[in-house]
Design a protein around this nucleic acid. Structure first.
Lengths: 171, 171
DNA sequence: TTGGAAAGTCAACAAGACTGACATAAAATG
DNA sequence: CATTTTATGTCAGTCTTGTTGACTTTCCAA
């Protein structure tokens, strides 16, 4: 269970970072960090009577303009009923535009209106501010490691969604 | 906004890791990774009709045996009414023991029963399994960076809670 | 002895997840 | 062309987990 072996795949580096104690600390760090990660946008959302679900929708519509409802469902991993409630509000509030698909008229293409884009920017910037500070304090090598571990922690499907987008936005 | 400056606090290392694009990728990576992070325990909890809130309570009682309700409230950042609902169920189900404080009899000291410890182990091991795999794949340097960035991302109070425990369990 | 802190309980409510059922339009398929 | 499947939307009801507010009991400490 404790996973300490002399040698192994990291040469003469010991594997103390894989002990149950270290893993428990990583788990707890994830919990506290994620709470910090969501804290700033949550404050903004609260004022406007939106929730984290609205933020997620805004984020992914911003990231992939013209995406369909089905795409969004898959990425967010929620039911259409749940997403619909959130989306309906964003549409009636004029933050999201839903337009009938050109190729397939059953589909709805979702885009942010200027107002939607503005809120997305505001939420995103609050979140980026914290991440920027953390990145800056930790330095580029730590950031690379951070990103590496996060990616390894994702489910296969999430990672696929992430990597595809990631690739498209690299070059 | 884009935060690119030649030179700066990292000498001749460029600051491309601080662009808004990179920060957005970090944000999204956190979202997907956190979902992966909670997926395995969630499955186990679902079978037993418990939720993530029960897991959190079990985790922190395991981590600090004999902790008080108030301590737990502060760490979890929820109201006592919300925690009480969760705690009451864990107590009646025989997973948590609540005993009257010896020094201050108003306080309740919370500990896991053998059954509670067993479930905590099961949940924790599922979560550690994923983290262990991620750590192993990413390597010790990446893990150090991961932990560094997470810590920088926490709120001040969370970090205090984390660092204190962290220190106690290091030597 | 009295004020206030700690803990617990009850009630009511909301967000955001879920399931199930059903409607509509359009595409795909036989 | 008829049928089936797909994409979306909607209604109704449930569950978890959070919230606020009001109230009680216990009991430490000034």
């Amino acid at each position: 269970m404790s996973d300490i072996r002399p040698g192994g795949s990291f040469g003469n580096q010991n594997l103390l970072f894989l002990t149950d104690g270290q893993l428990r600390k990583g788990i707890e760090a994830m919990f506290f960090a994620y709470r910090g990660f969501t804290a700033d946008p949550d404050k903004i959302l609260d004022d406007k009577d939106y929730g984290r679900a609205h933020h997620r929708a805004l984020h992914f519509i911003h990231r992939t303009p013209g995406t369909t409802v089905n795409n969004l469902l898959t990425i967010l991993g929620v039911t259409k009923q749940s997403l619909n409630r959130v989306l309906r509000r964003l549409i009636t509030d004029g933050l999201v535009k839903s337009s009938v698909g050109t190729k397939d008229k059953r589909e709805r293409n979702l885009t942010l209106t200027p107002e939607g884009d503005q809120l997305e920017q505001q939420l995103s910037e609050a979140q980026r501010r914290r991440m920027r500070a953390a990145y800056r304090a930790a330095g580029p090598d730590a950031v690379a490691g951070f990103r590496r571990v996060l990616e390894e922690m994702m489910d296969h499907d999430s990672r696929r969604h992430f990597d595809v987008w990631q690739g498209k936005n690299d070059g």
